[in-house]
Structure formats: C-alpha cells, structure tokens
Design a binder for these strands. Structure first.
Lengths: 250, 250
DNA sequence: GAGGCCATTTGATCCGTATCAATGTCGCGC
DNA sequence: GCGCGACATTGATACGGATCAAATGGCCTC
C-alpha cells in the first residue's frame, strides 16, 4: 500500500563543523559536500504531543532528530493504533524518492528536527554514492529491528513484551540512563502507559498491571511513575523470553 | 542481535539476455554491467521443506528467488516461532555488507535461487550506484510492509488476520491466482495451516477455525484444503479491518 | 488548602484465543 | 484394498488479556 516514510537510525557523531550532528550522513563526505548539506538544511521544532506528519502528508523534507522523542504509528479506521517505531535523537525521518508519509509521526517530548529539503538531498545522494550506501545500511538495520519486533508482537506474553520494551529503552536512550554499581541501571520512561500499550499491542491497563507485577517480583523498582530502577539487568533480560546468549547487553 | 539478512522485493522482468530474470537489479544497467552480473552468478536448488539458511549462518552470496516460495522466520528458545517474511519469486535474499543471516530461511516449495557471490556483488554495487539505489528503494518498501504487518500482529483479531493473509497471497502471487468474472478470484494457498499460524501469530487450530468461519459466512469457498475461491474480493477486504479507501485492489 | 485534571493503578468480569484431545481426510507405498 | 503418516478439522475447556468501572495520586490553578 503504498508509500512512504521510514525512520532510519543515524549513527551521528558531533563533527565539530555544525551545531547539529549530521555527520553520519556525511561521515565520509569531503568538505565541499559538507557545505552542500549545510546549504540545504534548516530546523523545525515541535512541542510535546504535537503531530509532525500525518500518514499521506506530502513531505518536502527528510530529517534527522536532533533532540526529543517521536513515535511512528498507524491507526486503523476504528481507532485501534499500533506504534511501528520509536524515534530517538539521531534517527532519520523520511524517505528519499517518496513524496508522501506512510505513517503518523508524533512528537512525544519537545522535538527539534534538522531538515534537508528533499529534492536537493536526493540530488546530493545521486552525486555522492556513499550517502546512499549509508542510508541502505541503516534501512537494512531498521528492517531487521522491525522484523524482530514482529516476534515480540506475535509471540510474546504481556510480561515478556513489557520486559522487552524496558530493555529497548534502557539500551537505546543512552542520554537518559545511568549505570548502577553491579549490573544495575536507572532510566526514565519517555512514554506514557498508553504509548507503551500502542507499542506492544496491549491495553494500557495490562501494561500497568504487568509493570506492577514486575515490581512485585523485584525485577524492577519504580521512583514515581516514570523512573525505572533495574537492580540487575540480567533478571530483566530473563523475563523477555529472548535467547540470553545471543542478546547483546547494553 | 543485529546482523544480517533481508528480503527485498525485486521487480524482475525477463530481460531476454539471460535464462533467469535478474533484470530488475540491472534494469538501468549498461550491457557491459549486465555481463559482469552474468559472470558472478550461479544457481542453487532446494527441495520443499529444506532449510536454505539458518540464523547466524555465514552467507557467501546474495540471491534472487527464481521459482518457488520460501519463508523468513525467527524462533525463540522455547520453540515459539514467528514468520517475518514470505519470499516469492523475484524477492531478494541476503544483504550486501553483512556476512551472517539474521533469520531462518526455509524453502516451502521447491525453490531455485539465482545467487551472486557477495564480494563481487558488493564491488559491483559501489561501481554502479543505481544498483544500490534500486536496493534502497526495495528495502524501504520492505520496511513499510514490515511495519504494516506489525499492525496486523499487534491489533487485529484472528479473523481479520486470516483475511489479511489471504488478501496478501491473492495480491502477490500472480502466478497462482486466476481472476473470476465479476470481482472474484481463485488461488492456491502456498502455506500449510501451521505456516499460516506462524505468519499470523496464532495457533494452527485458530487458523483452521477462522478459515472455516469465513467459509460458513460465504466470504470464501474451499476446493480441497489449499484452493481458495473468493466470490467477491470486496467482501474479503471488508473482513480485514483495513481502510477500504486507502487499499489498493490487486 | 480546595478543586480539578490527567495519568495511573486496581478490581470484577467477559471474551477470544490457546491448549489438550479426538476425529476426519487425503495421498502414497505396499 | 489396506494401513500409515501428514495435514486439517472440530470439540471441550482453560486462561490471558480486554473491557468496564472505580479509586488513587500527583500536579497545577485559583
């Protein structure tokens, strides 16, 4: 069904050349290519809760998230919604070669995007092949992640789903997490219970119950509603149902 | 985690130059590029039920399916399995730049692959940018499909899931379907009930029951266990829960 | 501090799908 | 033709998560 929008994880590094870190797009760029990127970029800001794109929207840009968190989701006619991606800083929004968005993008926290006008960006891509290569690598990684998430949605229990989500947040959002002595960790949940339920294909009540259950089992502790303390990460990993050997830790 | 293998839908056309139809990879190739492709390709055959790749396997090739059907799936420690992709003729297996397979690939029917040795193929990609561009387009399409499937897995009822799968098979496997007068269609299911359940995140019993239910409702008819007759495709579409307006028909 | 709003938790019950088990059907080799 | 095995259907029951409903807690405004 058509069209048009992906989130690509950009392995950004501060390149020292520019206020935003779009170095990954151009990590192998010559200085003059960097200048071209510089020329076609601009910024956009969105407040928490604000929609960034609706499915079907015309997109005149591709973008990289500088700060904040957004969700990528799909809503059925009757209102059932499924989150299909969680966009963190350095993730990529948009798709070269397509004009319309295929999913809804919503800012969960305040978000700043570094946008590149689509046409010039596509032009740049054809002129500098390694940008396309980098995008291909990132897209293939995203595809693997999406497929792994299918297993979560299709085969895991509610408890395993929650553990999997907590682990993803713990691993991906380096800025919000803090290592504890031993194999523990503290981090803040960027999502409401409802957003978590949209991600996991559950109801918000079930999410709440399972978080309580994990707390009662001593797997996690809560400080307020959003801060999660994991005394021993291995215990949480054990709850995901995943193969422990194959799993990369943090 | 991580790594390594994607299925990319190749829009193959018989190019008249070669017994297998790898034209899509090279639809914009110059004749001499075609010759290079010709040099690095070879064939492999697999019998129905045979594994093509196991997750973690070293892959020395990328390939395009010439004939037959394969599945892409993931199995948890305890045996729960989730199919994450259905590979039909013209689909692409493998991933340039990665050495190991991330998912299991199994031949459902007898399968013939047209393989390209990975290194030379990657070399070719860097020399002829439009091959990479084509792969990027295909991968982005696959990513969209994967995300749409997440909604099926996370939010649809068993009946809606079955209808969605039937529709996908009806739409994708042109070789096996036959248009009926009016808005009807006949096609053969390439999958066992168990494979369908793996795809849909259900049990095989539930699959069987829901197919029976659709039959009793008159949405579909069965001829034997595998041949499906859909008197009116619109009726089936109505069962998917999808937005009818947005749906492309066939 | 009172009141209101929103996110979250908790409780009671219902329903859809899983599970366990038996039966049916088709194709194939002997 | 018979029996076997693979695949599929159907039935009875259990259980996990959804649904409907109410209570709690934090935070903000007035």
């Amino acid at each position: 069904m058509a069209s048009a929008m992906g989130s690509l994880h950009l392995d950004l590094k501060d390149c020292g050349n520019c206020p935003i870190r779009h170095r990954a797009v151009c990590s192998r760029c010559e200085p003059d290519e960097l200048e071209v990127l510089e020329e076609i970029k601009y910024y956009r800001s969105y407040e928490a809760g604000q929609p960034i794109l609706w499915s079907g929207d015309h997109m005149e840009f591709v973008a990289s998230i500088v700060t904040g968190i957004s969700t990528l989701s799909q809503t059925m006619e009757d209102g059932r919604t499924q989150m299909v991606g969680l966009l963190l800083p350095s993730d990529f929004i948009g798709r070269p070669g397509r004009e319309t968005a295929a999913f809804d993008v919503v800012a969960v926290s305040d978000v700043t995007l570094c946008c590149f006008r689509r046409r010039p960006f596509e032009q740049l891509m054809t002129n500098t092949p390694h940008i396309g290569q980098r995008l291909l690598e990132m897209t293939l990684d995203e595809l693997d992640s999406a497929r792994e998430w299918m297993t979560v949605l299709g085969r895991k229990t509610a408890r395993e789903k929650i553990a999997s989500l907590l682990l993803i947040v713990a691993r991906r959002d380096a800025s919000l997490r803090k290592q504890l002595p031993g194999d523990g960790m503290v981090f803040d949940l960027p999502l409401t219970r409802e957003a978590m339920s949209d991600y996991l294909g559950l109801t918000l009540e079930t999410v709440s119950r399972q978080i309580s259950a994990l707390r009662k089992s001593g797997i996690i502790q809560l400080e307020g509603k959003r801060r999660v303390i994991v005394p021993d990460l291995q215990d949480l990993i054990a709850e995901t149902g995943d193969d422990v050997d194959g799993g990369m830790i943090i």
